[in-house]
Design a protein around this nucleic acid. Sequence first.
DNA 1: TGCTCATCTACAACTCGTGCAAATTGCGCA
DNA 2: TGCGCAATTTGCACGAGTTGTAGATGAGCA
Lengths: 158, 158
Amino acid sequence: MKPPTELAEAFRARGLKVTPQRQLLFGLLDGNTSHPTAEGLFVEASAQMPGISLRTVYTTLTDLAEMGELQPVSCGAGAIRFDPNVDDHHHGVCDSCGNVTDAYVVGAESLIVEGLDGFTTNSASIVFRGQCAPCASSTDESTSNPIPNSQQQTPNTP
Amino acid sequence: MKPPTELAEAFRARGLKVTPQRQLLFGLLDGNTSHPTAEGLFVEASAQMPGISLRTVYTTLTDLAEMGELQPVSCGAGAIRFDPNVDDHHHGVCDSCGNVTDAYVVGAESLIVEGLDGFTTNSASIVFRGQCAPCASSTDESTSNPIPNSQQQTPNTP
DNA sequence: TGCTCATCTACAACTCGTGCAAATTGCGCA
DNA sequence: TGCGCAATTTGCACGAGTTGTAGATGAGCA
Ligand SMILES: [Mn+2]
Ligand SMILES: [Mn+2]
Ligand SMILES: [Zn+2]
Ligand SMILES: [Zn+2]
């Protein structure tokens, strides 16, 4: 994703207005590696701009995604996440805390795929599921768990 | 997925009852390669057993999934699909008609993944997006499109 | 400064799935 | 074969997540 200043220009160039709501979201997304959901961004935005509506957050995120500045990421369950990292990359999802981590896969293009004869592939996305490092250590060790697995952001309850 | 007869035994062995509703669903899933949704199975089941409830379909599918007889497949958007093919395999999703095809990927285990240090991977699922063969030929050729892309099962409307 | 169309907010609606409780039924057992 | 009861079915409500809509509001431009 471009930095906020350039996003403002890109919006104006498209005939879209640069509103305080949008600028706030530009800032919240800039350099954000947490793969936030619309709801999550709404909560953060509301802290700085009480009264902002969830609808506006969705609209802005959709605009950014259409401009290619944001990559929507479906992790298999729960809300869609929005990723300012538009590199060609994939994701690891922790089944305990729900955190999503960037994963760069080398050689994905040279995979041998059987069964898709005649299929024209436009994109491939890989989701790794498992346990992130903090969750693995906090459950492996029999010591008291400082993070009870249901208080972190977007916990999974399958 | 086991054949219906063996599923009946497996259910009874678990203390689950073998009802007409469940037997009907066993039959609809047996050898089914269409990756149906709960709603889709409900429609098919309703044709043979009017009055069956969508709730019962969900319950039975959940039971089968917990027994490992069915694999829930998230394709990134829309309803969860249920796959009687529990092999280790992946999926191609057509962006035009929404059809889901099995894809067997060779060498997926030996992929080099960067960025997931400390992450314990339990599973990896790959979703290929693009155009299936029928959709590709019907849109490439400038002839009249016999399938207007919105009448097939589970059309995508992004 | 004033105009005007895009945007914002509030609210309804919609999709997919789950929780719940009353009525029904499979099935082990006498 | 007939009982008894736990499992199941059904219908409905509810919840999360997302989108449609319309009137109020405001950004950008002359
Ligand atoms: Mn990412
Ligand atoms: Mn499959
Ligand atoms: Zn974790
Ligand atoms: Zn297709």
